[in-house]
Amino acid sequence: MNVFRLTGDLSHLAAIIILLLKIWKSRSCAGISGKSQILFALVFTTRYLDLLTSFISLYNTSMKIIYVGCAYATVYLIYAKFRATYDGNHDTFRVEFLVVPVGGLAFLVNHDFSPLEILWTFSIYLESVAILPQLFMISKTGEAETITTHYLFCLGVYRALYLFNWIWRFYFEGFFDMIAIVAGVVQTILYCDFFYLYITKVLKGKKLSLPA
């Protein structure tokens, strides 16, 4: 555990909590892509199956349970409790275009051709692109609530911090996982455009709106 890994995890946790609280306090999931949230629930489910097979640390186990629990709670709020506020007309990204290629890639490029390992690889690849339905929704409506941009910022910062964590681990532990690193780089790149808008607009007190 190093400082980048820890702050990355906390940033990820902050993102998840911000989204849950935003929906809960406003009693609305307007502007939130339910499809992205389903993909994240799928990511956590397929990655954390090792909860059943191996114990790493109390920290590791508790964080996994919190992430999975919050992911399903978010999906429940969007598709059940506050379903009436869900903006399905703008959430039109075709997720099969992500899930099918990512599934195929997980079968082809993995560390070991075993069910749990393929599911882990699938989750890593899927996480890297799971935010696309949300970004697509924002590009379609041309705007995002400020609190939603805070969520996205924390989520992007999390993977960027993991990149520093992997550099650290490579130098000090000789550890590197090429699958996680390549997917993590792709994931971070997808946020770059958003980071630019966040820094130039939201941090200056303006609402995030895209030119028509």
Partner: peptide, 10 residues
């Protein structure tokens, strides 16, 4: 053993 690749991250 599943966790041979050191998936100790979240």
């Amino acid at each position: 053993e599943y966790n041979v690749y050191g998936h100790d991250e979240l």
